[in-house]
Amino acid sequence: MSAATLPLGPPRPRLGPVVVSVGVLMVAAFGSLVLGPAGVDPWRAIVEVLDHIPLVSLDSGLSSQEAAIVWQIRVPRLVLAGLVGATLAGSGAAYQGVFRNPLADPYLLGVAAGAGLGATIAIVSGLPTSTIPPLAFTGAVVAVVAAFGLASLGGSRRSGATLILSGVAVAAFFTAMQTYLQQQHADTIRQVFSWILGRLGTTGWGDVRTLVPYAVVSWLVLFAYRRHLDVMAVGEEEASTLGIDPVRVRLMVVAGATLGAAAAVAVSGLIAFVGIIVPHIVRLATGPSHRVLLPVSLTGGAAFLMTADLVARTVQSGGELPIGVVTAFVGAPFFAFILATRREVSA
């Protein structure tokens, strides 16, 4: 038997999960577009969106107020949900890969604690709300840089475990500072909590425009390192005998993931759980290769958060649930269900 004639191909990139996740994403986007308290005609809402495609000119027949609800409120909000969900899920997949740790999520190295401190500083000092995102972003980045700095005190070639522990220390410290500030300014607790529980902006396209560049750079960096992440699956020492510099890959992947997660958190607060459950669910369908795992985590994360947001704003008449509550409330049982019913991977 000659090797050249063997039917053995490369394991083909499985298109199934990609197609399914894009389908789910489209359903979620469609639902977010047509459902809402304002009772806009679904068909006309779709025509209204198509009208905004360049070179397409259609008349939706919506009143200018209804048109504004669709184009200035619903569409930017669902796009923002998609961007935030995709970025958190992609960053989570990357963190899990680079640290070979299923518990890793985008907040692992202090993004959440740093952003929380930044946002709390803005809130308790009575700064305008427009300063919350930049301060939250800065806090997140400072926390991760501090974690890296702390980890490299004992030499820059320290292992991923040292970095994780440094992140834990930094996060604890930042959280303590935040709690202290919060306790000193009890009158702002509601506002701080509402930020912590996460919310998707109601500021039209502004948040989307802010987030897009960071999100796209983050996705591109992570996607560029997808093969390196696959090599890192055999651990740092073996990866390095295969010609990969694990320290450099870790630095680049963490930088890319942190950039995206920090920007997402800055505009939307601390939305829990997306970055950890979406990549796990996707991995059960796609297998561990980051070539498929990363893109499907992006589409899956977008679909998940759009759906969660739809639930958040429709389930309770006359008010919205915080999105972070919905992601955990829906996500945790769903995840438990998946884990309990999946077949043990055997082949």
């Binding site: 053995l8 490369p10 394991p11 696959d230 699956a233 055999v234 073996e238 295969l242 991995r283 561990p288």
Partner: peptide, 17 residues
């Protein structure tokens, strides 16, 4: 190190890195 869920083909392919 035995990576989770990686096929033998993909594993041996790591040698081509």
């Amino acid at each position: 190190v035995v990576p989770d869920g990686v096929t033998v083909f993909d594993y041996v392919m790591l040698g081509r890195t």
